[in-house]
Design a protein around this nucleic acid. Structure first.
Length: 489
RNA sequence: CGGGGUGUGGCCCAGUCCGGUUAAGGCACCUGCUUUGGGAGCAGGGGAUCGCAAGUUCGAAUCUUGCCACCCCGACCA
């Protein structure tokens, strides 16, 4: 392991790449664009999953699992959907290999599939095909299903967690009797994502809707949560789509109403992915490594003994065991690193790199005074405490750290958000980084031109927007509200 | 997919232009001793068909051709 990370100020994307690998979160694999998520990284993902899954179930959703392969013909049933995904699909064409005359393994051309299978880039089509058989009556609605799965999108340029050709995610697919109910569901889920981002990831987000050009392929409305990274670029961190009756019509999913009429069902779909890992890393971490919010840290407290010889270690361990028991009783995850193969300084640096929120150090001089040293990852602050009652100090401090890193990220976002009223100011603000709030005339043409000139896209039309009259920064035409622009990942 | 760059033990890399005994160094790893309150020191040791495949040559990490992978910049994206 190299001693130091590239500094964020020197090269932000290099810092990110190094951090992901050095903190043991993930690495590249033998397959182009696909990553190996390592145990420490996966442990964080599991924590995210656990909380999200709980929130989904509390709002009435059930988990199910649908096939990874989708018959090619399914894709042509919803026109805009296929347009959106066709260019990045992996396709299975054969089902057998054989040895050729040189002893090499080759595809057996005689084992060609009648109909090619698409490796799912998202599951709307296979799920709606299935829903046709599940839904007959208004009594079958609403249907609230989520699946945890992997999907494949053959991206040209990939980056660990942020954009990989295969990624893990959850996708919710719901069916409702009315439009209003489907919209309520769509909004409920974006609110859950926002709550998760802010309370668990300690990452402030802006909720809003996407413009026509940025909307999900096949959706009537896409809600998004947009987060700001430390380099001033925005990251779309979760989306919830109101699909109208598009998929119901494409897959002929009708239900009998109370009145006995036949109607198409209304749909939503919503997802977050392992991209959240990238967001988590970039939102908080610093030049010495990860900074994890306590609620998602696999290890919340690490204890490093400082000792000479086995006798001393034994003495320290006796005290540490008492503290570990008290912490565990409070549901705090704790690791005691009593390896004698690494020096304390090495361990300090290692746990900083891995973002462990609180570190305790205990040595001979602490034993004499019944003390223990506590260091915070987020502020680097070090303080000596009595061993008695340290578990209460830690419990409070974990909450304080969670709040502190949220506040820090929120302050950063507010400092780097600019309100502008003309194109020159807009260009300067985008160049500086961060969100830029500006008037837009609502046309795709203006949106496109602004993107060409500045590389900034409309991240969202914020839900909490206040309507106000203004002039579009590009066209000068009348506008009724400001929208949020930024350069994005 | 277009432009540029790079591939040498697990990692970082020297050597490649100008072909010639055993491919150099650092990190990591193994053994031993001394160490341990912010990334330890010394001594010894193991590990490489030089990205892959052909070709040129008495001889290829080095030259030629093709392929592959990765990185940066564009177009695309959860």
């Amino acid at each position: 392991m190299a001693k130091h990370l590239t500094k964020r100020s020197e090269n932000y994307s290099q810092w990110y790449n190094e951090l992901v690998v050095k903190a043991d979160l993930a690495e590249t694999s033998a397959v182009r664009g696909a990553m190996v998520i390592k145990p420490y990284g996966y442990a964080i993902w599991e924590k995210m999953k656990e909380q999200l899954d709980k929130m989904f179930k509390e709002t009435g959703h059930s988990n199910a699992y649908f096939p990874m392969f989708i018959p090619k013909s399914f894709f042509s049933k919803e026109a805009s959907h296929v347009d959106g995904f066709a260019k990045e699909c992996a396709v299975v064409t054969h089902y057998r290999l054989k040895n050729d005359e040189n002893g090499k393994i080759v595809v057996d051309e005689s084992a060609k599939l009648e109909e090619e299978l698409i490796v799912r880039p998202t599951s709307e089509t296979i799920i709606w095909h299935t829903y046709k058989n599940w839904i007959q009556s208004y009594r079958d609605l609403p249907l609230l299903i989520n699946q945890w799965a992997n999907v494949v999108r053959w991206e040209m340029r990939t980056r660990l967690f942020l954009r990989t050709s295969e990624f893990l995610w959850q996708e919710g697919h719901t069916a409702h009797a009315t439009k209003e109910e489907a919209i309520t569901e769509t909004e409920q889920m974006i609110n859950i994502y926002a709550e998760f981002a802010e309370k668990w990831m300690a990452m402030p987000v802006i909720k809003g809707t996407k413009t026509d050009s940025e909307r999900f392929a096949g959706a009537l409305e896409t809600y998004t949560i947009e987060a700001l990274m430390q380099d001033g670029k925005a990251l779309q961190s979760g989306t919830s789509h109101f699909l109208g009756q598009n998929f119901a019509k494409a897959f002929d999913v009708k239900f009998a109403t109370k009145e006995g009429t036949q109607e198409y069902v209304w749909a939503s779909s919503w997802g977050v992915s392992t991209r959240l890992m990238g967001a988590l890393i970039m939102a908080h971490s610093d030049d010495n490594g990860l900074i994890l919010p306590p609620k998602l840290a696999p290890i919340q407290v690490v204890i490093v003994p400082i000792f000479k010889g086995e006798e001393q270690l034994k003495e320290i361990s006796e005290k540490v065991d008492i503290i570990i028991d008290k912490l565990k009783a409070k549901g705090i995850s704790v690791k005691y690193d009593d390896r004698d193969t690494q020096k304390p300084g090495f361990k300090f640096a290692e746990y900083e790199l891995k973002g462990v929120p609180i570190r305790l150090a205990i040595g001979k001089r602490d034993l004499e005074n019944n003390n223990i040293e506590l260091a915070r990852r987020d502020t680097y602050e070090k303080k000596i405490y009595s061993q008695d009652g340290i578990e209460n100090v830690i419990e409070d401090l974990l909450n304080e750290i969670q709040e502190n890193i949220y506040k820090k990220a929120l302050d950063f976002r507010e400092e780097t958000t600019t309100i502008v009223d003309n194109l020159d100011d807009f260009k300067a603000a985008i160049e500086k980084g961060g969100f830029v709030s500006a008037h837009w005339d609502g046309t795709e043409e203006s949106e496109q031109k602004i993107k060409e000139i500045t590389k900034a896209t409309i991240r969202c039309i914020p839900i909490k927007n206040i309507l106000e009259d203004g002039d579009c920064i590009y066209s000068g035409n009348k506008s009724t509200q400001r929208v949020l622009f930024a350069k994005a990942y």
